[in-house]
Design a protein around this nucleic acid. Sequence first.
DNA 1: CACTATTTGTTCAGCGATTGAATTATTTGG
DNA 2: CCAAATAATTCAATCGCTGAACAAATAGTG
Lengths: 412, 412
Amino acid sequence: MTSTPGLVGAVRQGSLRELNLAVVLGRIAAAERPPSRADLAAETGLTRATVSAVVEDLITGRLVTEADPAPRSGAGRPARGLVLAGDGPAGLGLEINVDYLAACVVDLAGRVRHHTVHRADLRPHSPADALARLVDLAGRARADATAQGLTLAGAALAVPGLVDDAGTVRLAPNLGWRDVPVPSLLAVHPPLTDAVDGVPPLVVDNEANLAALGELHADPDGPASFLHISGEVGIGAGIVLDGALFRGARGWSGEIGHIPVSPEGRPCRCGGRGCLEQYAGQEAILAAAGLAGADLPADTAAARLAELAGSGAADVLGALREAGTALGVAVAGVVNLLDLDTVVLGGGYAPLAPWLRPPVLAEISRRVLTAAWSPVTVRPAVLGADAAAVGAAGSVVRRIITRPAGWLARAG
Amino acid sequence: MTSTPGLVGAVRQGSLRELNLAVVLGRIAAAERPPSRADLAAETGLTRATVSAVVEDLITGRLVTEADPAPRSGAGRPARGLVLAGDGPAGLGLEINVDYLAACVVDLAGRVRHHTVHRADLRPHSPADALARLVDLAGRARADATAQGLTLAGAALAVPGLVDDAGTVRLAPNLGWRDVPVPSLLAVHPPLTDAVDGVPPLVVDNEANLAALGELHADPDGPASFLHISGEVGIGAGIVLDGALFRGARGWSGEIGHIPVSPEGRPCRCGGRGCLEQYAGQEAILAAAGLAGADLPADTAAARLAELAGSGAADVLGALREAGTALGVAVAGVVNLLDLDTVVLGGGYAPLAPWLRPPVLAEISRRVLTAAWSPVTVRPAVLGADAAAVGAAGSVVRRIITRPAGWLARAG
DNA sequence: CACTATTTGTTCAGCGATTGAATTATTTGG
DNA sequence: CCAAATAATTCAATCGCTGAACAAATAGTG
């Protein structure tokens, strides 16, 4: 890993078309309203002739379709609007978590075309068993997608833990997994999707990362850089910089739960002391609210807290204020370091956002140097608990949009 | 600022050559030993014919020269090694700090060809006055460069503060600057260099950012991602990810000095409490070591502390241990968040590294989840106090290497 | 209703850059 | 001295973009 900046592969003759396919498709995807070929030519600086040729490739590859006459006023031949095809490739998103499995299918345009959640406590089951159930769920999702005329172009699996490049789950504490080689365990099943352009048929990634991508995907007009915090039993963060997920040197970025917020404070199971998780993790909040022994399923605990807080329970309000302050201390550090202007409260934090937001904002305005010039926005996530599954499917779709050549080569 | 990922400009016909110029030049720059045209063809996948054509452009543009016969063994026509030209374009690096001005010139190959430091307390002077002195220093640097056959292709100025896109210094607390429009103040002087490819003749950037780039530049075989910490009166950090500087949404990333390390601890001039700067900043270390009133020049304070620590002064050792622990707490949070595997102690921390390193490492191993699998390296910076000036010059050189077409168009 | 202005999208010759094979250049080894 | 081997160049072919001309389709105008 030496420092060879920008060493992209050489640009061969055909790469030109590959790159322009991506450029044009990216513009179509990012546009507010269906652009015409002429619009695209003006935006990109390419000739109308070139854009026409590129668009023709995209249309025959079923990535783009012509929309109804665009609402363009004025004289002249009416433009034909271009939109992402709703019946071409789609992404399969899977999620495996402590007490549920989920599968969903998202089409190119970003619409969720299929969604199933299977509730079950997975901790007693072996990884192989859990994955077998997941394959079953995925099979049904694929059947539904096929029935709708969609073709799955890849799959991504969200796991609540650290995943290495090979797709092995190195550590998923709440699931009780350690060094689980997901791809080889899945090899006994028929492949979920075909490999496209060298990308394996199933990509495994961290839940917090994919949830952040889901948020990016669900709100195309939102900011291009933000911090997405998933508050579950552990606290994970997905860092989106300039529209792309930042994964860190080894893909293990975002462990915000173990940022120290009180250096010699409560001992943490990670071995350190005073980690954020001990103050703003789900268990810590429940304990502070006097609900320690309630043993609620992970995904209902947040809803329950929100309900109690809404009815004005004093100890719950106090617990949330304390958690929000701890969260704010950690977030202030992150914002100082990365200069982000948006923080999204996701996962279990989303329903609690009304109570967490004020203390988080207070700490930010106290501690962030640049907050005076440009304020930091703190808002709840748009997607709910299934953000990771949707984000996983969206990551597949996004890969097609940023590199359409692979799909086109496959589709013929 | 909407989320339009990877919306690079379209790829026009001529971009092909532009991109391949960058690819080939980048390989030559990154190579361990002078590569031949055939090596480059094999590495990049381009044809030997194409590589020859590209290399010819680079040679006539004075970016590359043929080295002495390469030490290649075996039969066949001997290869002609290609190296970065030492007599073509060069970068001018400038630095303005509390008690000195610096100018240096770095050639394409990365050698420092000129270096001047002018010591003077700049706080009493107006920004315009300080900049006038800097222009004088820069003029002499340029004269020296010209005498050596070099052509300045751009300049960069390092400032200890926050700089916006336009080059205005929004806030440089230790210099006492606020909203200083550097480019327009410099407009009264003749331009230091010509504009190349739309980049203004002088780029203003944060000192910590440029120092990190200097480190990247000084150690080409080092890691591609690291955190570089400049410990001066304030504490700044430069974040290098994958060989590129990460600047944040607005270019104000790296304010590590105000990460909370003891949330309700000592009040900080930023308005917060318990900021790292209050525990590991130069003033804090001096105070803890019982040297508060010494009023040392900023750049000798570190040397003095190192000297005292080397001779075993107990209170200095204690102060450094305490500072190192605070630094370690903050760094652990950063490493958890960004998953970096290398931390470089730069600026005033470099000479103190022998004493700071152990407590920093201790906090990291306590608090970083992934430290067990892949250890985090903490090491002193290679460059000394002038890292920022060298890094500034290096940033100019780096821009030429990553985008040679601009220079070639200018050179004709 | 005919006519013009206007904008969109396509067609086509031209051109620049890459390609692949053939050719030349230069050295080692027998 | 000759064959083998490797490096670099030459050159016709090809691929994709360019620019201009052209066809298509509509709104406005008298």
